[in-house]
Design a protein around this nucleic acid. Sequence first.
DNA 1: ATAGGTTGTCGAAGCGCTTCGACAGGGACT
DNA 2: AGTCCCTGTCGAAGCGCTTCGACAACCTAT
Lengths: 338, 338
Amino acid sequence: MVTLAEVAQHAGVSASTVSYVLSGKRSISGATRQRVEQSIRELGYHPNAGARALASSKSNIIALMIPLRTDMYVPVMMEIAIAVATTARTYGYDVLLLTGEEGPDAVRRVTGSGLADAMILMDVELDDERLPLLRGTDQPSVLIGLPADTSGLTCVDLDFKATGALCVEHLAKLGHRDIAVIGEAPAVYERHTGFAERTLDGLRTRAQELGVRLLHRPCEGGYDAMAVTFARVLDERPGTTGFVVQNESAVEPLLALLRQQGRAVPEDVSVVAICPDQVAVQASVRLTSVAIPAQEMGRHAVERLVAKLDGHGTDEVVLIAPELTVRTSTGPAPAVAP
Amino acid sequence: MVTLAEVAQHAGVSASTVSYVLSGKRSISGATRQRVEQSIRELGYHPNAGARALASSKSNIIALMIPLRTDMYVPVMMEIAIAVATTARTYGYDVLLLTGEEGPDAVRRVTGSGLADAMILMDVELDDERLPLLRGTDQPSVLIGLPADTSGLTCVDLDFKATGALCVEHLAKLGHRDIAVIGEAPAVYERHTGFAERTLDGLRTRAQELGVRLLHRPCEGGYDAMAVTFARVLDERPGTTGFVVQNESAVEPLLALLRQQGRAVPEDVSVVAICPDQVAVQASVRLTSVAIPAQEMGRHAVERLVAKLDGHGTDEVVLIAPELTVRTSTGPAPAVAP
DNA sequence: ATAGGTTGTCGAAGCGCTTCGACAGGGACT
DNA sequence: AGTCCCTGTCGAAGCGCTTCGACAACCTAT
């Protein structure tokens, strides 16, 4: 293993000079700099991460806490994680992957040990038990998702309330008066995950304003669960002509059921999904959808965090404005029989 | 920040004693140990990761390199990543998330800087450019996936060749004589990702042995791509009664197309999928499938790695035996019209 | 009683880096 | 010619931990 000292000797300068060449924190003459850089290359020098962390008390690592439940909104999580990792690298940070398993202890461990300089938390619950810890430390953090009380926290998320509103508006504008919402799995609501409730809030509020009837039903993914939910919905509201689907893995089952019942999309029934664009495009019907901008969320989170680490950067909530893309799963409501 | 020295002072012992209590590398009297542990708890001490890494030249971090392409076999990747992270924690390691983006440089950077003690590589290509680097370093590593030349490497993977064979056997035993294989996206073959080619090898070899006709077609995910592929397959081999699907995101489209054509599953056509169990269960037809044991692969990889780090542990290839679960998507081949 | 072994603890060195203060040398001013 | 201020470089002090050798204190076997 090559050390700073060896590079210094090879270049005929002192260790501190090499350090300053590396960090750029003091000015170095062109000649010296080149000589040092040359030596670094020749020797294949890589600064030792541990020593660096110890001396500077900065690890250049960002911790990312992802949810353990691998069965839910997986593609979104994965995309965010990858966006976080790649964005972090462009700022010179590496990413430490933590699973929710350890819970609050992970936060304590990481902040306490100086393993990471900052953290990003995903899958935040409304009243998350990790939040007091975050507030009680001076380590910067960013949440992806919104808790109930955002004071003193930086959060990044899609504006799910506006998303809900947008979906209702779109359907209402097309003349639909009876809308069913296929929500996330019951467990998601039980955990009080913010995004699901905020979406619902947006849906309900706008529906009321527009005088549209709304029926919300949580739903597990998969065909069987969707079939049950679907039957109940039609039983309760036979006149339903519009669907808003938030659970990705319920989209395709719903489309299959509609087909099976001989209801054409979008002629008889319109479907709006809240899902990543890729899902909307790959579905059996090209879905009108509000995209979940996973990449953007990951990137944003890192950028906020880096800003905080650099000293500028304030606590604030960044809500990404939803965008609805009209594809071929929505159309005018069918004329009502008189 | 609480330091070792402060704990030592608080407990009335020397710093080294505290260190030995923590590491257990020398025997400590019960009384002293308790006093120290008490102090640690009272002060809320967490060892500094950087200092530890510097002094011991071990970071207790495992690097995990995941593929950048987020669009392929995502759930599998995610599940492996999570299994790696949680298993690593049980051995006292944290996981550093690297994306394929940096390529071989990431390997250089991580080994050179001592950021991680070991690495796990996913999405290994047959002739992966990261392999020479791994062979040239004494840092332990484990591959998830198989390259062409495994000498001097430790690899963990599903036995995809046996998987292919198993699928053909199952269909052949049911009387199917014309089998179509819906493969991964063309890009996967172009990159010479081992698992796809090995599966194909297993399929072809066994098909020949059993005297079954096999038609292999790569296929992108989604409905449109599948529709094209499907049409071509039927055009070329109208008598096809069995399908083996390796691309997860082609499964549901295929089922939809079959339904649309009025071909019943499993009465007219049988379908075997190679996919995680969850996908097989959630599909519109409960799929007979060979599971991709993502969790097991992740866990195995970490266990091998930890064994290597502990000094015991040898280079070897661990192939997990495939298991085929019969569900309701396969049945006897229909009687041929005379 | 003495030599030899254990057992438990301590002090000090050092891991490889950053960073602070010091300072030599060279303009640009008076 | 002297002062002042840059600019570029160096030496040394630590960051918080691990680990090695030393050594008291005690125990056991002679």
